[in-house]
Each structure stands twice: as C-alpha cells, then as structure tokens.
Write a protein that binds this DNA or RNA. Structure first.
Lengths: 209, 209
DNA sequence: TTTACTTTCAAACAGCTGTTTGATACGCTC
DNA sequence: GAGCGTATCAAACAGCTGTTTGAAAGTAAA
C-alpha cells in the first residue's frame, strides 16, 4: 500500500515539477499537456488522472514559499526600517534575477499579469497581496504617519515597479544591451541603485532623508 | 481599378484594425484568425490572402505613432529638463492608462514582453529602443556629466519601471484595490508622484535637487 | 492464488488551429 | 459584351489541442 502510494505520489511530484518548468517556459496557453507528460516520463492521461485537468494542474503547481520566506526573514532582521528596505530590495532582486528555481514561479506570475487566467486570483491572494502589504508597513515606518494612504500606496508601487521592471524587461534588455549580464555583481549594483533611488524618493514624503 | 483597389484596401484596413483589437485582447497565441476575420467582416482566407500569414499580420498591425509623437512633442517643449521630465511622465501615463486607442498597442507590447515572438525585435527597434534613448538624453541633462553611463541607464530604468508598473499591474490592482479608478484625476496624481519620486531619486546622483 | 484496488498505457475522440484550394463574383479595359 | 486579373467565398486540409476510454499492468490484502 505504502509502495503504491509513494509510486503514485512520485508521478504526481514529477508532473508538478515538469508543469512548473513548461508553464514558465511557454505560458499557460503555450504549454501542452503532452510536453509536460513527456518531461515527467508519464502518460498523457496522467495529468487528468492525478489533477483532473490542465487548469487544476496549474493551480497546484503554484508555489510561493520563496517569496514568503523572504518576507519572514526580513521581518526578523530587526534593524532600522531603511536598512530593512535595502535588505528586502536586495533579496527581492536576487529572487527575481538570480538563478534560484523561484524564477519559474516569477515567470508564471509575469505571464498571468499579461494574460490572466483564473489562477491569478490565487496568486494575488497568496503572493502579491501579502507582498504589497508587507512593503506598505515597511514604507510606513520610513515615511511616518503624516503621509496619506494613497501616497503610501504609490510609494510602494514605485519600489515594486522598479524591481519588477528588471524582470519584465529581460527580453528587451537582451536586445537593447546584449553585453549586459545579470550576474551577482550586477544584481547587487541594481539593488543598491533601486534602494538609493527609492530612499531619496521617499524623502520627498518623509521630509529630509 | 481605383474602386477595386480601395475596396481591397478597405478590407486590408479592417483586418488590421480587427487584428489590433484581437491581438491586444487575447495575445498572439490566443487570438484566432477566425475571430479577426469575423470582426473585420471578412472571409477566413482573407488574412492569408492579404498578409501571407498570421505572423505577418501581427507585424503589420504594429503602430507606434502615438509613442513617437509623444517624444517629438516633448523635445519641442524647450523648457528646462526637469519640467520636460514631468511633462513626459504625465503624457506617458496618459498614453498607458488613458482611454486612447494606443492602449491596444501597449497591450500587444506587454504581451510580447511576457511571451516574445519574432515581432519583439521590431518593437524594440522601433519603439522601446528610441524611448530608452530619449529618456537617457533627458535624464543626462538633469544629472549632468559626472554620472556614469551604467548609473544613468539604471535611472532611466527606474523611471520607466515605475510608469510601466501601473500598466502591467492593472489586473492585480483590479483585485487588490477594486475601488480604485484610473480616471483622469488619478492618472495625474500618479504622474505627479512618479515625477516627484524620480526627481528626488535623481538628486542622489546630481547632488542637491 | 484469488480478489479488489489503484495506476498506467495506447488509442481514439471531438474540437479547434492556421492555411490551402478551386470555384465564384467583381471591376475594369478593350 | 468578351476577356482578364483581382478579390471573396465555402469547403476542406493537416495538425495539434485537452480529454476520455477501456484494456493492461501493478500492488496488496484475503
């Protein structure tokens, strides 16, 4: 019984891994059940047997552990808010541009933004929403209580916008600056720039930086 | 002869309009030739007859006149660079979020970023490249000669990133802040925030703002 | 071994895709 | 009106899609 279950669960796991790969590579529409099963060494019918449908497979393939861990780690770093913002931007850029396997999840999210499917609701609820909320609190610590909620929101958007730009525009950068490599050193430089730029931007709201 | 040609050209034009609509709505993969022809009141074979293929249709459907006009108008406004940056951000946000028909083009571009097809090369060459270059020169006027080319590039990215964020994240905003309406007033507020935030950010490089 | 079950598999299904075809209708010159 | 090139059309094509099916294989308790 345990043997059977683990065998079945192994197939399930292989399908999930393959699905994450293929969805990230080709998008939801572009990804085919056959390609997923091919990479998972499984039969075409396996997806429907184990998950019910291609839609349900995508829903189960989502995994935001990396993003959540990042926020938890940052909250534990009990330094002053400005330093924590620097730390967050740094970690966030590493997640977005680094070679972590989280980039697949980011790719799926990016594709959902340009072409939403029903799973976007779940992505917003589980990942993007908490992220915005987290950054909102952090920025609030920096700018103080006098700043309106609307302005605070716009500041958060300015920060996330700068970070996610580098992710979204990778295909463009490849063509515009083919010599540019997003290695560890470059990522750190970008993160530092965004932090400097943003803290100066925030100073417009909080008074002198 | 002229009658025939204009009739044929009318079909061509209708197909192009419909294509822009459908590509923007469903993406390149999601858009179907049949739907495009249905909206253009044309036969299914019309696309291949007039354009050769679905790919070629997309390539011809691209239109960056709005984006180009925006840069030309800004260059003519011979005010000081900071004011011109404010003006540009304002016009750019109106293009991105306003009710202009340019939003279809933006949608196509956004989809190409998340899921590039061969036409992305053309988009980068004709639209995004010139845009980056334009902003590069403008920012250079503000920060002066002492700033390195790499830092200048990152500043440009910070500005474009903030602007395009509001475009990319519309599906998210709809879910996260359903009460928020991107009416003219809100767009102006956003544009002013981005300008303030960015000019303060730039002051980090150019010395005191 | 028999029985009951889960899991895998090749094959087929119905539906949609971009594209092609050959016939038909149109507009124009002669 | 005859002839000619262009444009439109319904129909069919080949290929791919997600999904279903019913048989076969595997697993574990009786």
């Amino acid at each position: 019984m345990t043997e059977t279950r683990t065998a079945s669960e192994q197939t399930r796991a292989r399908l999930l891994d393959a699905a994450r790969e293929v969805f990230a590579e080709y998008g939801f529409q572009g990804a085919t059940v056959r390609e997923i099963c091919r990479r998972a060494d499984a039969n075409v019918a396996a997806v429907n047997y184990h998950f019910g449908s291609k839609d349900d497979l995508l829903a189960e393939a989502l995994n935001f552990s990396r993003l959540k861990a990042l926020q938890v780690a940052n909250a534990k770093a009990s330094k002053n808010p400005k330093t924590r913002l620097r730390l967050f931007i740094h970690d966030f850029m590493l997640t977005l541009l680094g070679e972590t396997n989280a980039s697949g999840q980011c790719q799926i999210m990016a594709r959902e933004l340009a072409d939403p499917t029903p799973v976007l609701d779940e992505i917003v609820r589980q990942a993007i929403g908490p992220l915005h909320e987290f950054l909102g609190k952090l920025v609030r610590e920096i700018v103080g209580d006098k700043v309106s909620e609307a302005d605070l929101l716009r500041c958060v958007h300015s920060i996330i916008g700068q970070c996610s730009f580098y992710y979204h525009s990778r295909p463009v950068m490849q063509r515009l600056h083919p010599e540019l490599r997003f290695d560890h050193k470059e990522i750190e430089a970008i993160a530092q720039h965004i932090a400097d730029f943003s803290l100066n931007g925030l100073s417009h709201y909080s008074g002198k930086s």
